[in-house]
Design a protein around this nucleic acid. Structure first.
Length: 471
RNA sequence: CGGGGAGUAGCGCAGCCUGGCAGCGCACCUGCUUUGGGAGCAGGAGGCCGGGGGUUCAAAUCCCCCCUCCCCGACCA
């Protein structure tokens, strides 16, 4: 299977391979405006699965979904100094509407802190209104200078959560719960991508946040990708938007806030973390199609038997599709499904049918097994479970093999050519971060020695910086 | 914006130097034979050669101007 000439090989040219996979697996196409993207049905099905899994986890924290407008008055952006400074260069601004020049230009949201907080100020009056926990699924626009499909597009889809709390510690712990219970859990358990959860340095922090936490993953070429972030905003926006409440003692105070997001970039991450030279490899828990029943030839009732088998699989809780396109050659169809990363293929032809069997093929290793028809459902379910675990294990081993413990900034920069470099924070220092950046290497995050995310900015136990080249 | 490339069929490219019927591969359409790892043969459709101007009997090709896209850097989920 690997080694076919369908795709540029990953080793030859990783970025080209990535583009090839997106095109051949029919995930996305470039939009007509530079930096925009058309998400094709199969790519969107993957995104919808991600949405479902993330949405469920968000709601389990007691968060409700809502929707805020695409257009934001330009003046809103200016209310928080760091925020406007961070986003101004990448804003799309609408100056005309209805054939007339607008009194005040409106910006297309690059993120919704400002508009959400305008309403938080209106909706929050007393401590009984807190915590206020909202999330929205939306599109945002950031005029990026160097777009890449899924990884950095001018318009992208995401979820953004916005919360307001009565105390700093409650806000902080909520931001950390999102990081761990929503993002990390989803990425590890569903995407089968191991992530480091850590804190961003001041340089990499979200514009307007007190603390930014991140999920960082290693892609198949050793480069890092930020997969999700959670911010503790302190009272910065509360002061800028005058979001106050009366506490139990009757004193008026500003709320403490968080915001957090994950985007369609995750689709790109999935491709780059698990794909191989034959295309995509989807973790079974995420895959929109977990199994395809492939009719080898339209003879002797194979099509009917395949449909029956597919029904049986669906009944066993497997997301299954049947491929009866016998006017397309068998080899072509096999290659198509491999490109799309469907975890398990069940092949059914006249020979199998005569024997009362089918061939169960796993995408991960190309392993083929002949299985009695009545045992197919069990074999498929077992294969799906195994592959979910195996994919995570493989990615974890890869990351481990490409992570180097370093003792100097120079060593870390060198090691970052291959993957992650770890360095004690006191060795890095502020100058070290600047030095690494000049060499094209960034500090992805700071982690505690036990691997967890450091709680806040204040110095505590000795921390470790993770450096890498990044997307 | 700095540096480097490229615009020719849906995609990938050749042709340009040395001007002379606009081509190749893949994809697409029709038919037949095929189908257990990207099938074969035959026939067919598809072009503002990025745009404008100039030179010439004649321009994809030579000259001038303009536009766009891609790659590397700064920005970034």
């Amino acid at each position: 299977m690997a080694g076919s000439s369908v795709l540029t090989s990953r080793a030859d040219d990783f970025p080209r391979w990535y583009q090839d996979v997106l095109a051949k697996a029919e995930l996305a196409d470039n939009g007509p405006v530079r930096g925009t993207m058309v998400i094709r049905p199969y790519g969107f099905a993957i995104w919808e699965r991600m949405q479902a899994e993330i949405d469920q986890r968000i709601k389990s924290l007691g968060v409700s979904n809502a929707y805020f407008p695409l257009f934001i008055p330009e003046s809103f952006l200016h209310k928080e100094a760091e925020h406007v400074e961070g986003f101004s260069p990448e804003l799309a601004v609408v100056t005309h509407g209805g054939g007339k020049k607008l009194e005040e230009p409106v910006v297309v949201r690059p993120t919704s802190e400002t508009v959400v907080n305008w309403y938080f100020a209106k909706w929050i009056q007393g401590h009984r209104d807190l915590p206020m926990l909202l999330n929205q699924w939306a599109n945002v626009v950031r005029w990026e200078l160097r777009p890449r499909l899924f990884l950095r597009t001018t318009e992208f889809l995401w979820q953004e959560g916005h919360t307001a709390h009565a105390t700093a510690s409650e806000a902080r712990s909520f931001a950390l719960r999102v990081l761990g219970d929503v993002y990390r859990d989803f990425m590890v358990e569903v995407l089968a991508i191991p992530v480091l959860t850590g804190r961003k340095t001041a340089l990499e922090r979200f514009a307007g946040a007190e603390t930014t936490w991140t999920c960082e993953a290693m892609m198949g070429d050793g480069k890092a990708l930020q997969m999700g972030t959670s911010h503790e905003l302190g009272q910065n926006f509360a002061r800028a938007f005058d979001i106050t409440f009366l506490d139990e003692t009757g004193a008026q105070s500003f709320v403490w806030q968080t915001s957090w997001g994950s985007t369609t970039r995750l689709v790109g991450a999935l491709v780059m973390a698990h794909g191989d030279d034959a295309g995509l490899r989807l973790p079974p828990r995420l895959a929109p199609v977990q199994t395809v029943v492939l009719v080898v030839r339209a003879e002797e009732g194979t099509a009917e038997a395949a449909l029956t088998l597919a029904d049986e699989l669906a009944g066993a809780g497997v997301r299954v599709e049947t491929d009866v396109r016998v006017d397309v050659s068998f080899g072509r169809r096999v290659v198509d499904w491999e490109l799309k990363g469907v975890p398990v293929r069940v092949e059914l032809g006249p020979r199998d049918l005569a024997e009362g069997t089918a061939v169960v093929v796993r995408r991960l290793r190309g392993e083929k097994r002949t299985v009695r028809l009545r045992e197919v459902a069990g074999a498929v379910r077992a294969a799906l479970e195994d592959d979910q675990a195996e994919l995570l294990l493989e990615a974890t081993d890869f990351r481990t093999s490409r992570t180097t413990a370093c003792t100097s900034v120079a060593d870390a920069v060198e090691a970052a050519a291959e993957g992650f470099a770890t360095l004690p924070v006191e060795v890095l220092g502020a100058d070290g971060e600047a030095e690494a950046n000049r060499a094209g290497v960034s500090v992805r995050c700071l982690i505690n020695p036990d691997g967890g995310p450091p709680a806040g900015e204040e110095p505590g136990e000795p921390q470790v910086a993770v450096l890498a080249r990044a997307y």
